[in-house]
């Protein structure tokens, strides 16, 4: 499956169906993240039931503590 993530074209396994699975794929499952799917920001509680599909434009920002 081809996704457009943070401005780049990225190929991810087609077994990934939800935003939660996508975050796990990028090892972001333990991070606090903000996800935008096709220009709509998602509520965190909806990550598990929100599907991703070929061609989606996704922005992922994760919070870090360092400074």
């Amino acid at each position: 499956m081809k996704l457009h993530i943070n401005g780049e074209n990225v190929e991810v396994p087609s077994s990934i169906s939800s935003v939660t699975e996508l975050l796990a794929h990028f090892e972001l499952q333990d991070k606090v993240v903000i996800v935008e799917l096709n220009h709509d920001i998602l509520q965190k509680e909806n990550h598990a039931q929100t599907n991703v599909s070929d061609g989606d434009r996704i922005e992922i920002v994760h919070f870090v503590g360092g400074g």
Partner: peptide, 11 residues
């Protein structure tokens, strides 16, 4: 080489 800007007003 990534860059992202998200409008988070809805949050």
């Amino acid at each position: 080489n990534q860059h992202t800007a998200i409008n988070v007003n809805r949050a």
